[in-house]
Design a protein around this nucleic acid. Structure first.
Lengths: 100, 100
DNA sequence: CAAACATATCTATAAATATCGATATGACAT
DNA sequence: ATGTCATATCGATATTTATAGATATGTTTG
């Protein structure tokens, strides 16, 4: 982990909704309904569900998630027309190691 | 640690200089000259030294440090006319626990 | 291939943050 | 008490970020 990446992660974690998204994704079963098509949460949660939970516009949430993926704290998997997001614990660990 | 505090800490860590300050304060001996009056780094480093190292104005650095103290990641001790800043590992640990 | 749906990107504006100079406050030394 | 030094706060402006609507792209389904 270098200074630049750490700062980008800090920016992602400088907004209440984005911090909440990170919290929600710790335990998707607890915070999101099961997806109609995919029956599991192995790859996380789709953009629409996160958008509904957060109560912000689709474009705003999409931007959030894109940036969170860019700096590495989230990872996304496409399943058909849906994008699933989950926490990237590797990067999170590296970040924690950097600041502690 | 609650959502609000975690977000405030995220804001502090969303700027390159502030992240660097946190890094520098991990090992003051390595990054700062010994203070003329105080011979030790037990309470950290004074504002002026941090300002000089960062290369920003006194008012900017003072604002940074005040906010970093408010959210708990730094703690300050007055020794005469100097304010010494050091990391508050307790809060940092709590924050890490919150996001991991 | 057209329609429908999910997500991403673009563009614009509102809101928040960054940064500094000026000034105020607090602490020591004379 | 006054001058000096260290730090804090205020006020103003520049820059960045937030946010959403519109539009584009990609994917499935009929």
């Amino acid at each position: 982990m270098n200074l630049k990446t750490a700062t980008e992660i800090g920016k992602c974690l400088s907004n209440q909704t984005r911090v909440q998204i990170m919290e929600w994704l710790k335990d998707p079963e607890k915070h999101f309904p099961p997806h109609e098509t995919l029956k599991h949460f192995n790859d996380g949660v789709c953009v629409t569900y996160i958008k509904e939970k957060a109560g912000l516009s689709q474009s705003t949430i999409s931007t959030y998630l894109t940036n969170m993926e860019k700096c590495g704290i989230l990872m996304s998997t496409r399943h058909g027309k849906w994008s699933y997001l989950k926490r990237n614990e590797e990067t999170i660990k590296a970040y924690i190691n950097f600041i502690s």
